[in-house]
Design a protein around this nucleic acid. Structure first.
Lengths: 204, 204
DNA sequence: ACGTGTGAATTTCTTCACAGCC
DNA sequence: GGCTGTGAAGAAATTCACACGT
């Protein structure tokens, strides 16, 4: 695949561009690298260079058509289709995830949720019935799910992650404060407020 | 301050080093850059270079004393003391935050929480009584709070953030899927699973 | 022999600055 | 005139490789 060589640091900025464009779309039809840069805190040159990795989306003298750039970015990020997600761990955080409408709005559907707590299994959150974690593998296979969100305690995260990989999961978004060690072809992202807080306090 | 010139990209890795060391401490007293690197997915050279920015923590031939390095990192990150935090927005996510014990375990105390919903105001979560958002400024001043977590809807995030800055907040951890535009001396971090998911799908 | 700390080399990322097109 | 796309320049981050202490 050609796009393998585009640096991950650039890929990581694309979703931010997309988000800002969605906001701008509400009030205008055109923007430019200067405006985007100011809204995001990046340089205009960087935005132009990043986008130019994927094609020529702008027009000299005019800038970028917002709708067109949004469509393009969605295509690049593979977010022009819907993705099914498996949630592992339906504690307080997991429940908040199930009830949060933002994922679906951006094409991410929490298709199934599993837990090991008998009191949670069978409960319904936002039309998703929690299933037994012991059925995890079949759920993944049957629904051909590629992405899992992990919202289990830190001590359980590695173990769960390995089971997920074995069951065929391709990418994991982990909310657990733990570093996962997995085969390199598995994509792992962390949503980890503790790390962020510790980063913040450095500067205070 | 001298440390201003140490690149933020290095600072951002320090909390990860700290986390791994806390894990290692349970089974050993000494480690080295190779082991840390393997656990974290960084090169050994990078870990040595990062740490050397702040002093000489290791011993040739031996490696690093884990306890000593943990103490050192805590001092560097300012996490050797406790921090009070204000939570803005006590919806589902906010409630999960209030009930999550992990913050306190690492020295972050959610000292106060505010919301604008009359049904939520007055409710108690994990010994924290939700107060009216209209009292936000006094709460910040009286408790001399420097860090705020923002767990409000995306549309409200910018407005709330500006009020926080006006009230004297120095750093914000935002859970809202929105880019905040604030004075540069305010430190902002994001905990944003949607961005992470969109980053993930690029590779699927 | 082992593993740190570090200048030097290398690679990667960002910004510059401008030709070219609207 | 305005703004993109892009080679070239510059800055920053990472890795190399080894002297040196244990």
């Amino acid at each position: 695949m050609i796009k393998e060589q585009i640096p991950d640091i650039i890929v990581g900025r694309l979703p931010r561009y997309l988000r800002t464009l969605l906001l701008l779309r509400e009030t205008k039809t055109t923007t430019n690298s200067k405006e985007l840069g100011e809204l995001l805190g990046f340089s205009a040159a960087q935005i132009r260079k990043d986008l130019s990795q994927y094609g020529e989306f702008g027009k000299q003298g005019t800038g970028y058509n917002i709708d067109y750039l949004i469509d393009s970015l969605n295509r690049i990020l593979n977010t022009d289709k819907n993705w099914d997600i498996l949630l592992v761990g339906v504690g307080q955080l997991g429940q908040a995830i199930l009830n949060y409408p933002g994922f679906l709005k951006h094409g991410f559907l929490v298709k199934a949720a599993v837990d090991n707590n008998p009191e949670i299994i069978g409960q319904k959150f936002n039309s998703c019935v929690v299933q037994d974690v012991r059925n995890m593998k079949e759920i993944i296979t049957e629904n051909q799910i590629q992405i899992a969100m992990v919202a289990v305690p830190a001590e359980k995260a590695q173990e769960i992650a390995e089971e997920l990989v074995e069951a065929g999961i391709k990418a994991i978004l982990s909310y657990a404060p733990a570093t996962l060690t997995l085969p390199s072809q598995i994509r792992v992202e962390y949503s980890d407020p503790l790390i962020s807080l510790q980063h913040i306090t450095y500067y205070l």
